[in-house]
Design a protein around this nucleic acid. Structure first.
Lengths: 203, 203
DNA sequence: TGTTATGTACACCGCCCTGTGTGCTTACGG
DNA sequence: CCGTAAGCACACAGGGCGGTGTACATAACA
């Protein structure tokens, strides 16, 4: 109890500075990028003193890493956990998030930090692999011939759409979705009533 | 004559400092990124005094923009100008550059600078559009049903492979090439002897 | 020869960055 | 009520950054 290391449970007595810091990180790192967001500005936005911030995080690097870990629930699980869709539809639904996600923060972090050893870069790798794995799982569920390959292909499409959207300032996800549709149709050997309702029970 | 603004013709009398600066930029911006490369370090690597550098470029921004303009010949034209390949093969050849191109510098610049108004960002957009246009031209030449769409799709694949290669530290271009093959086969309505030799003379 | 553009060497400025040191205030829990 | 930990205000250190000022060297061309 004496330690309690202010972990995921957050403030024990205080007024929750850690949450405000991470919340401000989400906004500022996205809007301005990591390198262009100073700790001074971040603390001001979080209404937290700089001293407090450095008591919660040993440095900016740790804060960045922790910031990246706060994305899974909002982006990833929301798509794969939908049981109202067939596996095939779930694969396509991954391309239906144009308004949010200006640029996948994992790509941005990997480029901005520019150090593969940085904890945030390592986490970005893990995350990308996890996404590909979940896509592969869903592809297998949908009856794809080579689920791993299809998962990797779809993951590449998502990253391509994200990167291209950023560079061109124009939504590229529809294009990626069109490609995904082709790939899925080619990889899944003529499933039942393809995209109408749920397919036959996967036994 | 009194002005001569040391333009594209380069040094008139001097010993070519401008070229050394741009050459060092190519190396350092790629290895370390733009933001992490200071003008001091860059000038040292180019064996150029800082004063000289600022006489050739009004600021780092201009240098970055000029640095990006030095990529077209090496990456782009080398693929599209090959007359020994059929248009169809040329489309696929765009994915055959794994050793070089650690990350497309245009994507990196757009992410690092993080300002769509920055001249380098604008040029990155222009370049990406130009690549898509050339791909579309080649697709049209190959007899694709919807060349614009195929060009945009292939461009997205290239960007996706570049981004994913960077984040994962693993070559993603083979995956992109596999997708490209599928798309091309689907989009080109059974051309002649598809990938054997060159197709019918383009008039 | 001298002029002029080009390049050099080096110190310097002001700014912003990450990160600390110190002392003070607040609020929760016993 | 008091102790203690969480948080705060503020100033400052140390360093890298982009960019400049000054004085000097060199090479081409008239």
């Amino acid at each position: 109890m004496t330690e309690l290391e202010k972990g995921p449970t957050g403030r024990r007595r205080g007024r929750g500075a850690r949450e405000r810091i991470l919340s401000a990180s989400q906004q500022l790192f996205r809007e301005q990028g990591i390198n262009r967001t100073g700790m001074d500005q971040l603390c001001a936005a979080a209404e937290v003193s700089k001293r407090t911030a450095y008591q919660h995080f040993t440095g900016k690097d740790e804060l960045v890493a922790e910031y990246l870990r706060r994305f899974d629930p909002s982006v990833l699980s929301g798509v794969f956990d939908r049981t109202d869709l067939t596996p095939r539809e779930r694969l396509l639904a991954a391309f239906d998030m144009p308004p949010t996600t200006p640029l996948c923060p994992y790509i941005a972090a990997a480029v901005e930090l520019h150090d593969p050893q940085h904890p945030a870069s390592q986490y970005a790798r893990d995350y990308k692999k996890a996404v590909a794995a979940r896509l592969a799982d869903t592809a297998r569920e949908a009856g794809a011939a080579d689920p791993e390959q299809l998962g990797e292909q779809l993951a590449l499409l998502i990253d391509g759409a994200a990167a291209r959207t950023r560079v061109l300032n124009a939504d590229a996800f529809p294009t990626a979705a069109a490609i995904a549709a082709v790939l899925i149709n080619n990889a899944i050997p003529a499933t039942a009533s393809d995209d109408g309702q749920r397919e036959e029970t996967p036994s």
